[in-house]
């Protein structure tokens, strides 16, 4: 504790802290915490169709591929088509929350669990998506483990169009409303993992997935 006090005391000395200044500072702090003001946001057409279009464009610019289906029930067949087209295995690990979809009918062997190193395809949903940058927001929970979007070489994410929000601020507001507090891990994912550490040349598939495929459900 003495290190803590020593550090904080020197910070206080630098700020010329007295009782009055501390009270004022604390009031400012609580005001900022409850105000939650936004900075400037880039202008955007927030009509649902426009958001969907922007989200698609931005996702593709980040090297993700995008498919869309009309209903959630159509997802397995679309995923099977993608895996066939890409010459990828027909077995996958998925979030337990998605284990209820009829994967077997589409010829896929899908297990709902956390991912291990051997899994080549991981299927997840997302908490919501951000149109500004083409970003997925994934929240960890027992039924939505973080490993599924991380360890496999291919990440397939199901995105409900009604959950595409304009800005990251909207995603945070939704998390507060629906989850109360933040889960252990919030991961904003924007395309496949990449590195530019050798000669600033971008290579996809550093430590995470080589490819990210989005299936948008236009519910």
């Amino acid at each position: 504790m003495s290190f803590r006090e020593d550090i904080l005391d020197r910070v206080r000395a630098g700020l010329h802290r007295g009782a009055t200044r501390t009270t004022m500072g604390r009031e400012e702090m609580f005001a900022a915490l409850s105000r939650r003001s936004h900075g400037p946001q880039p202008a955007m057409d927030c009509d649902p169709h426009a958001l969907l279009k922007r989200f698609r464009l931005k996702s593709e610019a980040l090297s993700s591929t995008v498919d869309s289906v009309a209903r959630q029930a159509d997802v397995p067949a679309t995923v099977a088509r993608y895996l066939t087209m890409m010459n990828l295995p027909k077995s996958a690990v998925a979030w337990p929350s998605l284990a209820g979809l009829d994967w077997a009918a589409a010829g896929l062997a899908v297990e709902g669990r956390g991912a291990s190193d051997a899994d080549l395809v991981g299927i997840t949903g997302c908490f919501c998506a951000v149109a500004e940058t083409g970003t997925l927001m994934l929240c960890s929970a027992p039924d939505t483990p973080a490993t599924v979007s991380l360890l496999p070489e291919t990440h397939i994410a199901i995105v409900r169009a009604s959950r595409i929000l304009p800005y990251m601020e909207d995603a945070f507001a939704l998390a507060r409303k629906e989850l109360g507090s933040l889960p252990r891990a919030v991961n904003f994912i924007s395309g496949p993992s990449r590195t530019g550490d050798i000669e600033q040349t971008i290579v996809l598939g550093a430590h995470g997935p080589y490819r990210v495929h989005l299936v948008i459900v236009e519910d």
Binding site: L62, T133, T135, S181, L182, P183, R184, A185, V186, N187, F188, I189, S190, G191, P192, S193, R194, G208
Partner: peptide
């Protein structure tokens, strides 16, 4: 935006 932006709690 970076590929991964994680908020860990």
């Amino acid at each position: 935006i970076p590929n991964y932006f994680s908020i860990l709690t």
